[in-house]
Computed example of a mutant assay.
Amino acid sequence: MANIGERATLTILREQPFGLFLDAGDELGEVLLPRREMPVKWNIGGEVDVFLYHDSEDRPVATMKRPKVMPGEFAYLEVLSINAVGAFLDWGLPKDLLLPFREQKERLEVGKSYVVHVHVDEASGRIVATRRLNKYLNKTLPKYEEGQEVDLMLYGKTELGYKAIIEGRHSGVLFANEVFRRLRAGEKTKGYVVQVRPDGKVDLSLYPPGRAKINDLESRIEDELKKRGGFMGLNDSSPAEAIHQVLGVSKKAFKQATGALFKKRKISIGDDGIRLTE
């Protein structure tokens, strides 16, 4: 049985001037595959793989294109227009995806992108997007293991750090003092599970267990020194706030990284700061 919001292999019933009619089963009946969407080669009685959604007049319609996001998934999509109904997002299909006003948490802007969840609305049967992400995140206790590599999508920032969707299902946090590079909402990246707390909250890291994150910070400090002409007015005695303001890391991480660079003779450490030696 073919359903809205899914891909299906459907039989070609007949051709009309505006396209091919496909057999989508008892519930949807015959659906149109518009002429601009038709495959180069086809025959009556043959089959075609399509995605099913609603056109601008709310009629079931087929497309051979693949949307940027399938219902049930999270995605980072651009706002193309806004009208009295809501915002319309670019999801790669001829008809833009509606994000109704009731599903928005903040004022959206045309040209900007936002993390949304896409689903088939139970009441209308239409495919829509929502900014109310927590409603669609899995609340069951995750079974991730410490150090496990996971796929992340960043979707927000708090005083603690960055919120991330784990494997398209659960939510976790990357703590700010453990992040050594700039992150943005919608970014997809690999991450690692630090721990799963008894309450189900997941602590994350961008780095595998061990020295990987310190090695990354070493490179960042070297790059920052080069940008500043080889000198930076920070050392082990600097306030933690000053270190965090410049590099966005904890004082402990800074001391570990600069200590390693000093041992490698890549920097010298003085009372006024650190200098490149190469």
Rank of each mutant, 00 (worst) to 15 (best):
L206T: 06
G19E: 01
L28T: 09
Y136C: 08
M38S: 09
D223R: 13
L160R: 07
K65A: 08
G86S: 05
D272Q: 11
D223G: 15
Q195L: 08
L93F: 00
I267Q: 14
K266L: 13
K105I: 10
N3F: 05
P209I: 04
E6P: 05
Q256M: 09
D90G: 08
E47A: 06
L22T: 09
V110R: 07
M232H: 10
F21N: 06
L204G: 02
E241T: 00
K65I: 07
K251H: 05
P60G: 02
V61H: 06
G200R: 01
I267E: 15
H117W: 05
E146N: 06
R132L: 13
Q104E: 14
M38E: 02
R211T: 10
F21T: 00
R7L: 06
K263A: 11
P100Q: 01
I12A: 05
R197G: 05
R182L: 07
T11C: 11
A253L: 15
N215W: 02
R211M: 14
R14D: 11
L247N: 12
A123W: 08
G5L: 02
K264V: 11
A185I: 04
K65Q: 14
Y76M: 03
P100V: 04
A253C: 11
Y114W: 08
A176I: 02
M1V: 09
L52G: 01
P239N: 01
A2D: 08
M232D: 06
E178I: 01
K163F: 05
G86P: 10
H54K: 12
L93V: 00
L234H: 06
A8P: 13
T258C: 09
V116A: 02
R275E: 14
L225H: 12
R59C: 08
